[in-house]
Design a protein around this nucleic acid. Sequence first.
DNA 1: ACCTGAACACCGTTCAAGT
DNA 2: ACCTGAACACCGTTCAAGT
Lengths: 221, 221
Amino acid sequence: MPARRRSPGTPPITRERVLDAAIQLADEGGVEGLSMRRLGTALGVQAMSLYNHVPNKDAVVHAILDRVVDEIRRPARDTPWREAQRDRARSAREVYTRHPWAMELITARTQPGLATLLHHDAILGNLRTNGFPLPLAAHAIALLDAYVFGAVLQELALPFQSPEEDAPVAEEVMAAFPADQAPFLLEMITDHAMQPGYAFTDEFDWGLELVLDGLERRLTP
Amino acid sequence: MPARRRSPGTPPITRERVLDAAIQLADEGGVEGLSMRRLGTALGVQAMSLYNHVPNKDAVVHAILDRVVDEIRRPARDTPWREAQRDRARSAREVYTRHPWAMELITARTQPGLATLLHHDAILGNLRTNGFPLPLAAHAIALLDAYVFGAVLQELALPFQSPEEDAPVAEEVMAAFPADQAPFLLEMITDHAMQPGYAFTDEFDWGLELVLDGLERRLTP
DNA sequence: ACCTGAACACCGTTCAAGT
DNA sequence: ACCTGAACACCGTTCAAGT
């Protein structure tokens, strides 16, 4: 088949459409579902055509990660810091659990994108405007960001979301459990995490409040 | 060439030797340096031979992740909780920064290995023995682990370790910086992170102590 | 029991060739 | 300017064949 112009109905391929399709592909098939070849066919084109709009796969990954960060609500400068930071932390958790592939890719990222820089600037702007001295603001953003990332990582590693809806999976996990070697872990799972009503969201909020408490105490001793 | 027995000097290939080589390969070349074919040649054998000792690549990844966790110091049950938890958190950070590939792989892991279970059991055992009620112990392990993971993730994403030794890299990063759009971030970098004497380790310890303070306060109100 | 070569179904990317 | 097919250098894994 010779190279030919696209059929009249098909929209032109642009960098934006490539990134849209890449996010959709990753949402559906995870990191391993995202390949240049599949990305091409999703856009009705050969993989090699993509290189007219994007330098390589790394650039695609870089760009879609920055788009994910752009989905997170950014704190306004003049909102009271505690509610602003709590809201952005919760928003970040929600966005990352909605795009689980982002966590896998972000560990390999070298340079932050523009949206990521603006996001961090907004966090710092809110803290500085609300009276955080520079060193404390630096500590605060590192701590808050570390907590959010780590908590999302934990959540994605959980074999099930709630004991109620995933009883068969829960039983399967427990069948292979070395009960006699890990009695404290067993206790925690059976008497706490597997209890009805347990939700990891509550765990996230509990830790977040502890962190915010600590920052407040260091801001106004 | 026909299939032949290994030459007299060569040690036999075992599961243990495969895992040793896999860790070494990942330490040297990162996640993308770890392939079954390269693993084979590192052991002086074809990639296909590895399948006699290991079911597939996923099993290799699973096993070497568990080995990394096994390197982390486990808290003793009867050590005072605050120093025990601080020590294990620092040890975890040290181990993960020494095996940066582990962070990339752990996000894709589904089931924890035996060492990982024992490690968590030791953390919980120390907390429970030191008077933490079950729900508080559950919150504590989630919070501490999230913080360590997130902080390591941040550290690995830093473009340079210290401003002193990586001045050219620092300048290159700053050249592309959108100074007018991100004034607060610019301030933090130039007036804080790029100052001589800044070390991310201090940032880690600062956050860790805040977390431990918060736990102590909730343990003894 | 253990190792091999060939094969299959995939990758990312380059390049000359088409329109 | 944009798209194509062929090619290159890689992947993980299966399988029949060797010793």
